[in-house]
Design a protein around this nucleic acid. Structure first.
Length: 889
DNA sequence: GACCTGCTGCGGGATG
């Protein structure tokens, strides 16, 4: 419904051209579509929220078209293009009327969506014979298209946030957008909470300054904070007044079904691959006409693709793989065939969460943790992708506790507890970029621009000091870098900022945007096409002749040259699967809440639904050996093992917050008495491991979990680690401090890292008040440590009843943490030499015991797994529980 | 008994 207090006069009946057109086609629009175009015609801005596949785009578009129709109706039938006088037509052949000027701008987060939109927006235009042109402007646009657009813009332009910024950097930008009346931001929920979203906000602020009556419309999927989403999009200027929120009529029906393991006897307690479920998944794929199999990581997608193909070689021609590291050509081929309905099965990552319209898909499978409610619903929505149809998702657990997660996720989805996305505040790196972008187009007067950027939600609280700092930064690179001309982008001429040189201008256009990516190496056949990209660190470990699995094929590594890894096809089918160091998506706050609630139910003896019933044996084991935490309880398990003392804490707060809590506790413990603590975290909890006993009673834990001095302590943690330095690399790129190379010839990643590290150090030493350093720390706190959620977790811990259990062996909840300790990070206040000395002793001890163990293993024991310590592959025998892994050389 | 972890997205001149 339209939010309270929004009353406007509907337009008069006789001008409803669109209605008549729709009637002729027998298409009756949804109520929300009609309300949207009414609001549009009444001059409003707003946000439309509806399920995918219900025609959100049309809801605004029809309003825009209707407006065009009315204008045409108001004009004399033979109206001429502006500038063409009637008299000039005497005796001479009359020119056809010019197309309308640029009226509508359509911003989408993805090129693929942009391409689709152009096609779908054209339909009513052609049928109504409007003299409108629909254009496309993304990085894919040809040179000819760009030239044509510079001469004259189409009536509606579909573009991306980055391309909008680029358009704003051209000298004739103002002219281009002079007649703009509407901006539509598609999939706004995808942009919100990212720097791309802020880039969009800044672009909109500029467009509104030129056209104060500009209407802004956002289109969004379900989101926990729709009002905030609307307000962020509309900004805080006069344009924001009277913004409406329009909801789609019926919420999408979604069914969450779990594929239960046939037996729980040997079902894993930890892990994430879920290969044990292969047979059941293959059966499910066989039973449906077409299936999307979603995985959580790229390597997992590669593995599942290989396994399914192994199981069903007859599917070779109709099963495909899709993830972000595959070459675009391969991906587009897969997308095209999926859309055409000739694919039996596509194994993919989030790369297919969004984008191409896949109405032919009739089954969606999710392998592993759903991580969030919105994400689960989004993926489910790829099936039943029609208005009114039920979406169904088949969930495949990869370890026992995921059964609890699915049950919890279903509860939360039924209660419509959907995650929100918090808008970003004041990313100054992006502001610096934007100021240069505008100055490249036209000399900038500081005072009006300050007012302009403060109409955005992101910079509404920008202080005069911060603004001055930003200008100084783009003018001289700040106090530390003023001696180096490459950091000076703008110069002042008569109070206006202008770009320093044509070269600066060219380089700046190449750095527009906020997406930064890690160094990767292209994978390419010796003779043949590119397959995609792999991380340098993986390639560096390969020797010529080594086999690895990528893009669903087994490849043999030939050589590496110019950041390209050349490969040839291998006849063998086995090989290692690359790992990519991507982002870690933690369990969302909403799903965490739901999991805690579910465990509370179980602790009360209620096993509701098939999943918890299935997981009953392991949950009862947890209860017997330790405890299943009730609602309002925080469980802490302690143990004494050969290598030291362990404490397992289970806040169920998602990986990032759990890791933050672990870091904080380790820091506070180390402040009490110097010691070295190894921390390990997962989505459920964390482990602290120390060579000395913790000896903590309930009150001591309470004291450790206090919110007092939280920011000071966390900041100390951030400073003690590499976190801020790593974060700074991306900031430096966005702010234009680092040039990442000309197209086609990327600067080697290591150089990029070195120079951003160098700048980081220079700032710290000579310009410690540099606001970008501050931003790096803030981003670590807000995005990496999720400080808001972390504080809430501590507050909950304070209110909770702490349950301490001394456990004799690893419990089902502790086991995954123990297994994950491979990825460990250390916080230490102890002297480095002491730590090394102790490590040596431990290694010697471990090496000694392992020889014996290995012999036993060879006589029929478990196969050793491999881990990497300090760049060396070391075999680890994992048969002994509860003691930690023993290192073998 | 348990173990190969970690997403996505964009963009980058100018003539005859």
């Amino acid at each position: 419904m339209i939010s309270a207090g929004e009353n406007f006069e509907p337009p008069s009946a006789e001008t409803w051209h669109i209605d008549r057109w729709l009637d002729q086609r027998g298409w009756s629009p949804f109520d929300f579509q009609r309300r949207t175009w009414e609001a549009y015609l009444a001059g409003r801005s707003g946000l439309v929220h509806a399920a995918t596949g219900t025609g959100k785009s049309y809801s605004v578009w029809l309003g825009i078209v209707e407006e065009g129709l009315r204008e045409r109706a108001d004009r004399p039938a033979d109206s001429l293009a502006p500038g063409l006088s009637r008299a000039s037509g005497n005796g001479r052949k009359r020119k056809p009327p010019e197309a309308e000027p640029l009226r509508a701008l359509w911003i989408t987060p993805m090129r693929a969506l942009a391409n689709d939109l152009v096609v779908s927006l054209r339909r009513p235009i052609e049928e109504l014979e409007l003299n409108w042109e629909i254009g496309l402007r993304t990085g894919d646009a040809s040179a000819a298209e760009r030239r044509r657009q510079r001469k004259r813009m189409p009536t509606a332009l579909v573009t991306t946030p980055e391309s909008l910024s680029l358009l704003l950097s051209y000298p004739d930008a103002r002219e281009m957008f002079r007649d703009l009346r509407a901006v539509v931001v598609d999939e706004w929920h995808e942009l919100l909470g990212t720097k791309r979203g802020v880039q969009t906000e800044l672009g909109l602020a500029r467009l509104r300054m030129w056209n104060p009556a500009l209407r802004t419309w956002g289109l969004s999927a379900t989101l926990g904070n729709l009002e905030e989403a609307r307000d962020t999009l509309l900004g805080v200027g006069p344009a924001a007044a009277g913004g409406v929120l329009i909801h789609g009529t019926t919420p999408k029906q979604t069914e969450v079904v779990t594929l239960l393991p046939e037996t729980m006897e040997r079902f894993p307690w930890a892990g994430h691959l879920g290969k044990r479920m292969l047979k059941q998944v293959v059966d499910a794929v066989a039973a449906a006409k077409s299936t999307l199999v979603f995985t959580n990581t790229r390597s997992q997608a590669e593995i599942w693709f290989r396994e399914i193909l192994h199981a069903r070689p007859d599917w070779a021609a109709e099963i495909a793989l899709h993830h972000g590291s595959l070459d675009r050509g391969l991906r587009e081929y897969v997308e095209g065939r999926t859309r055409g309905g000739t694919m039996k099965c596509v194994v993919c990552t989030s790369s297919l969460d969004l984008g191409v319209d896949f109405s032919p898909v009739d089954q969606v499978i999710q392998i592993g943790s759903p991580k969030g409610i919105a994400r689960l619903l989004q993926r489910a929505g790829r099936s039943g992708h029609r208005p009114g149809a039920v979406s169904k998702i088949l969930c495949v657990p990869t370890h026992a506790f995921e059964l609890v997660e699915y049950a919890a996720a279903r509860d939360a989805a039924a209660a419509r507890r959907i995650e929100g996305r918090r808008p970003l505040e004041k990313p100054l790196d992006l502001l610096a970029q934007h100021v240069v972008t505008l100055a490249v187009s036209d000399p900038v007067l500081p005072a009006p621009l300050y007012d302009e950027v403060r109409t955005t939600h992101a910079f509404r609280n920008l202080t005069p000091d911060e603004w001055r700092w930003t200008l100084d930064f783009v003018e001289r690179g700040g106090p530390a870098l003023h001696a180096y001309p490459q950091y000076s982008k703008l110069v002042q001429v008569e109070g206006r900022y202008v770009v320093r040189s044509p070269q600066t201008e060219r380089l700046h256009r190449m750095t527009i945007g906020t997406i930064t990516s890690d160094a990767s190496v292209a994978v390419q056949y010796v003779k043949g096409p590119r397959l995609g990209t792999i991380e340098e660190s993986f390639i560096a470990r390969l020797k010529p002749g080594d086999r690895f699995v990528f893009a669903g094929r087994t490849l043999e590594f030939v050589r590496c040259r110019d950041l390209k890894a050349y490969v040839r096809k291998s006849k063998k089918t086995s090989g290692t699967v690359p790992r990519w160091e991507g982002g870690r998506l933690p369990l969302s706050g909403e799903l965490s809440d739901a999991v805690r609630a579910k465990l509370g139910e179980i602790a009360d003896g209620r096993f509701v639904g098939p999943e918890t019933e299935q997981a009953r044996s392991i949950l009862e084991l947890q209860a017997e050996w330790s405890r299943v935490p009730h609602a309002g309880e925080l469980l802490i398990e302690t143990a004494h093992v050969q290598r030291g003392y362990q404490a397992f804490v289970y806040p169920f707060e998602g990986y990032l917050v759990n890791e933050g809590l672990a870091t904080l506790l380790a820091h506070r413990l180390a402040a009490r008495s110097p010691r070295s603590i190894t921390i390990t975290a997962n989505d459920y909890g964390f482990e602290l491991l120390s060579p000395q006993p913790f000896d903590l009673k309930s009150v001591d834990w309470q004291a450790l979990l206090t919110t007092d001095n939280l920011l000071e302590d966390l900041t100390a943690c951030v400073n003690a680690t590499e976190m801020a330095r790593r974060r700074f690399r991306d900031i430096a790129r966005v702010a234009g401090l680092i040039f990442s190379g000309y197209p086609g010839a990327p600067t080697a990643a290591r150089q990029l890292q070195a120079s951003s590290g160098l700048i980081f150090d220079v700032f710290r030493e000579y310009d410690p008040t540099n606001l970008l350093l501050d931003q790096a720390r803030r981003e670590v706190l807000e995005q990496q440590l999720e400080v808001t959620r972390l504080r809430e977790a501590l507050e909950r811990a304070k209110a909770n009843h702490l349950v301490l259990r001394e456990v004799p062996r690893l419990t089902p909840l502790a086991f995954p943490l123990w297994a994950a300790r491979i990825q460990k990070s250390q916080v230490s206040s102890e002297q480095w030499s002491k730590r090394v000395a102790r490590m040596v002793v431990q290694l010697e001890h471990a090496a000694e015991t392992t020889t014996k163990r290995r012999r036993r293993a060879e006589a029929g024991g478990a196969r050793p797994a491999a881990i990497e310590i300090a760049g060396e592959e070391i075999a680890v025998e994992l048969t002994e529980i509860p003691e930690v892994a023993h290192v073998a050389t």
